[in-house]
């Protein structure tokens, strides 16, 4: 089980309310630390609409009840929980589980992107 988690960085290395990119088993993973709590979210760093590895450099944006990241290229929103693109039903990015222990962050294997987190 343990070999599935990759140690990445200290929590305090991420400025609150921003994102960073980590290299996890050869994949680019965007980690986001919204302000106000110590929960960290992880999505694939690749923006499938813009076609570039940039999501970690987007702004964290609240849309209605959801926390999202707005792509720095064309501003589509990707849900931090589900990876779903809010503007395009047919687009989603992978989601990774994140574990925080003793101030260190570790990233687990990707959950496949779900089409719609609220679909049956």
């Amino acid at each position: 089980m343990n070999q599935n988690w990759t140690d990445v960085c200290d929590l305090h290395e991420i400025v609150p309310d921003t994102g960073v990119c980590a290299l996890v088993r050869g994949e680019q993973v965007a980690l986001f630390r919204p302000a106000g709590d110590d929960q960290v979210y992880a999505l694939g760093n690749y923006d499938p609409i813009g076609g570039a590895n940039v999501l970690a450099r987007g702004l964290i944006a609240q849309v209605g009840a959801r926390l999202t990241v707005a792509s720095p290229l064309y501003k589509q929103h990707f849900c931090l929980h589900s990876g779903q693109c809010l503007e395009r039903d047919d687009v989603a990015v992978p989601v990774y589980p994140v574990r925080l222990s003793n101030g260190r962050l570790a990233v687990g294997p990707a959950r496949r992107a779900e089409r719609r987190d609220d679909a049956a």
Binding site: C9, E13, I14, C21, A22, L23, L31, Y46, A52, N53
Partner: peptide, 13 residues
């Protein structure tokens, strides 16, 4: 830097 845990860069472009 591109990665917080690696000195490398983005290999996609």
């Amino acid at each position: 830097r591109h990665f917080i845990n690696d000195e490398g860069g983005d290999d996609h472009p």
